[in-house]
C-alpha cells in the first residue's frame, strides 16, 4: 500500500518537473506578447520592421528595426561561413580519420570551447582581435560585423561539430559495409552513402548552430560596434537585435514605447529562433525514420 502511494507521488512529482518547462515557456511567450505588442500603438508593424532609423530616445522617437534585423542576419551569415566548414571539417576528421585515442582527446577539447563564457569571447574579441584586424586590414575600426562573425563562428563550432559527429555516428555500420561490398572506395562511400544518410542530422547541427549565433548577446554587444546602420560591407559596424535589448533595457522607462519596442524586438528574435528549432526538429525526425530508427 505504502509503496503504491510513494510510486504515485514520484510519478506526479516527476511529471510536474517535466511539465514545468512548458509552464516557463508559456510564461515567457505571454510576457513577450503582452509587453511587446503595445509598441504597435506607437508605430505600425510595417514602420517598425521596415523602418531604417533607430532613434528610440529622440523627440519624436523613431523605432525602425530594419538595421537591427539586418545586423543580426549579416553577422549570422558571416558566422555560418566560418563555423560550417570548421565544424563539419572537424566532425568528418573525428569520424573518418582520427584514431580512437586522438578522438578521445580532440572531441572533449572541441566541446570545451562551448564552455567558455561568452563574455570571455567578447573580451578577447574586443582587446585582441579587433585591434589586430584593424591594423592588418587598415580598417577604420576593428569593431565591426566581420569581427563579430569571426568570434561567433568560433563559438558555434562545438555545437555544429558535436552534433554533426553524432549524426555521422548514427549511420548504421551496415551502410558502409554494403558500400564496400559493392566495390566503392572510401571517398565514394563517404560522399555518396554516409553524408547523404547523415544529411538531415548535419542540417540540424547547422540550424542549431545558427540559433546559437542569432541569440548570442554579450559577445556582439562588445565587438559588433553597435551602430544602428544598414550594413553595406562586412567591415561596417552593426547593432544586432540582442545587443540592442541588452544595452537599452536598463535605461528604458517601464511602460514607455521604448520599453515595449525592446520587448517587441525580443518577440521577433524569439520567433526567429523558434522557427529555426522547429525546422531542426522536423528534419531530425524525418532523418530518424529514413534510417529506420523508428519513432
Amino acid at each position: 500500500m505504502r509503496s503504491k502511494i510513494s510510486e504515485k507521488a514520484f510519478k506526479y512529482g516527476f511529471m510536474g518537473m517535466a511539465f514545468s518547462s512548458l509552464l516557463f515557456l508559456l510564461g515567457i511567450i505571454i510576457i513577450l506578447f503582452s509587453e511587446g505588442l503595445p509598441v504597435f500603438n506607437t508605430v505600425n508593424l510595417m514602420r517598425f520592421i521596415g523602418g531604417t532609423s533607430w532613434y528610440p530616445t529622440s523627440e519624436p522617437p523613431e523605432f525602425g528595426i530594419l538595421p537591427l534585423i539586418l545586423g543580426t542576419l549579416w553577422v549570422t551569415l558571416g558566422a555560418m561561413l566560418i563555423c560550417i566548414p570548421i565544424g563539419l571539417g572537424s566532425a568528418l576528421y573525428l569520424h573518418e580519420i582520427a584514431g580512437r585515442r586522438q578522438k578521445a582527446v580532440l572531441k572533449p577539447l572541441i566541446e570545451l570551447l562551448a564552455s567558455i563564457p561568452s563574455i570571455v569571447y567578447g573580451f578577447f574579441g574586443m582587446i585582441i582581435v579587433a585591434p589586430y584586424l584593424q591594423r592588418t586590414f587598415d580598417l577604420s575600426t576593428g569593431l565591426c560585423a566581420f569581427t563579430a562573425s569571426l568570434i561567433l563562428g568560433i563559438m558555434a563550432v562545438p555545437t555544429v561539430c558535436s552534433l554533426a559527429e553524432d549524426a555521422l555516428n548514427y549511420v548504421p555500420k551496415s551502410f558502409r559495409e554494403a558500400a564496400y561490398a559493392v566495390g566503392a572506395n572510401r571517398w565514394q562511400t563517404l560522399t555518396q552513402i554516409i553524408l547523404p544518410a547523415a544529411g538531415s542530422g548535419i542540417s540540424t547541427a547547422i540550424i542549431l548552430g545558427m540559433s546559437r549565433v542569432v541569440g548570442e548577446t554579450m559577445t556582439v554587444l562588445m565587438v559588433a560596434g553597435g551602430a544602428a546602420m544598414i550594413p553595406q560591407s562586412v567591415f561596417d559596424p552593426v547593432r544586432p537585435m540582442t545587443s540592442t535589448i541588452a544595452a537599452e533595457m536598463g535605461e528604458a522607462a517601464m511602460g514607455s514605447p521604448h520599453y515595449h519596442a525592446l520587448f517587441a524586438i525580443g518577440l521577433i528574435l524569439f520567433l526567429i529562433t523558434f522557427v529555426f528549432n522547429i525546422i531542426a526538429e522536423i528534419i531530425s525526425r524525418r532523418y530518424r525514420l529514413k534510417l529506420g530508427l523508428g519513432r
Partner: peptide, 24 residues
C-alpha cells in the same frame, strides 16, 4: 541626431578603450 554609423558603446570605459585602439 547622431549619425547612423556611429559606434555606440555601453559605458564610458568602453568608449575609452575603443578610442585608445582606433587611430581615427
Amino acid at each position: 541626431k547622431v549619425r547612423k554609423d556611429a559606434l555606440l558603446n555601453a559605458s564610458n570605459k568602453a568608449v575609452e578603450t575603443a578610442v585608445e585602439t582606433t587611430p581615427g
